[in-house]
């Protein structure tokens, strides 16, 4: 399992899975604390019309137009949610529900109406991604990691996801203090002169970038699960934000590795022939981690409610 075959078949998808999971989990921490956890859900639904429109405009299934389309669609969705919330005076949850279901329905309809039979573009692909197919055919064992010619044959999703992760990490690191301040005490942050609205919007945009980049490689399910489950599990392990982000990264990595291994090799161990969906399994593992944290996590109760449960 650790030999040449592993490098060719499993290393790239595993790394892509890990990068995607961490890139979503880091902004997920702040979304969770700001009670905007479902933004990830909404974004991953509206990605579908975005990629369909991008396909209809360009006529090809290529990464960049699709990501641009998805990014544009998520911005449109955020603007629409905000507009409906303000114009109609509707609570944000319902406004979100109206917008993302309608846009998703529009995407499905466009997809059915257009001729996509010749290309690989369907709802299932958008939902579960194609993690298993991201293999590295040029690899000849671990030595290929130092071989420039072979490295050029890496699936393009890998460097793109690594870049996204680096982008998210650097932004979080640079804006750590304002982010933390505006997340925990918006009023105080405003009085110290921080542009609170811009920080909130920036966070949503970064989350959208992570979601759009990750969805192309791994599908929507992982995106939604990683935005919420690792940060939620981490929240029950600690009270400190620094520690929470660290825990969430650990949980995200763990979900990606365990999920991929269980999906790829688990059925073989049980005597079945075919692997199961890696995206689904990664989401499932992150759910198991969350369940364990909800039962055993040291800080699982609301502060103040501890005494009554002790």
């Amino acid at each position: 399992m650790m030999g040449e075959e592993f490098v060719v078949l499993s290393l790239p998808p595993m790394l892509i899975g890990i990068f995607a999971a961490v890139a979503c989990a880091i902004p997920g921490n702040f979304l969770l604390l700001r009670r905007q956890a479902l933004i990830g859900d909404a974004i991953s639904h509206v990605v579908l019309p975005g990629i369909v429109v991008a396909f209809l405009l360009t006529g090809v299934v290529a990464a960049w137009p699709m990501m641009l389309g998805a990014g544009a669609a998520s911005l449109v969705a955020v603007a629409l949610i905000e507009a409906i919330r303000r114009l109609g005076g509707i609570e944000p949850g319902a406004a979100m529900g109206v917008v993302f279901t309608a846009m998703f329905a529009g995407g499905v309809l466009l997809l059915e109406q257009s001729d996509t039979s010749s290309v690989h573009l369907d709802v299932e692909h958008a939902l579960y991604g194609n993690l298993e197919s991201l293999i590295w055919l040029d690899a000849r064992g671990w030595g290929s990691l130092l071989d420039m010619a072979a490295l050029r044959g890496l699936p393009p999703e890998l460097p793109r996801m690594a870049l996204t992760l680096a982008f998210v990490t650097v932004l979080t690191w640079v804006f750590w203090r304002p982010l933390k301040l505006s997340t925990f005490d918006e009023g105080f942050a405003r009085t110290t002169g921080l542009p609170v609205g811009a920080i909130g919007l920036g966070l949503v945009v970064v989350a959208a970038i992570a979601a759009v980049a990750a969805f192309d490689a791994v599908g929507s399910i992982i995106v939604i699960a990683m935005f919420i489950c690792p940060p939620a599990a981490a929240r029950m392990m600690t009270n400190g934000l620094e520690a929470q982000v660290a825990w969430s990264v650990l949980f995200a990595v763990l979900s990606a590795i365990l999920g991929y291994v269980l999906a790829g090799y688990g059925p073989l161990w049980l005597g079945f022939d075919d692997a199961v969906s890696a995206a689904g399994m990664i989401a499932t593992v992150s759910g198991v981690i969350l369940a364990l944290a909800a039962v055993f996590g040291p800080y699982r109760h609301r502060s103040g409610a501890r005494a009554e449960h002790a």
């Binding site: 956890a37 859900d41 399910i221 939604i224 489950c229 689904g280 989401a283 499932t284 992150s286 759910g287």
Partner: peptide
């Protein structure tokens, strides 16, 4: 809600 929907759907 987000945790349940993504995990159940993934499973």
């Amino acid at each position: 809600i987000g945790a349940v929907l993504s995990v159940f759907f993934g499973f």
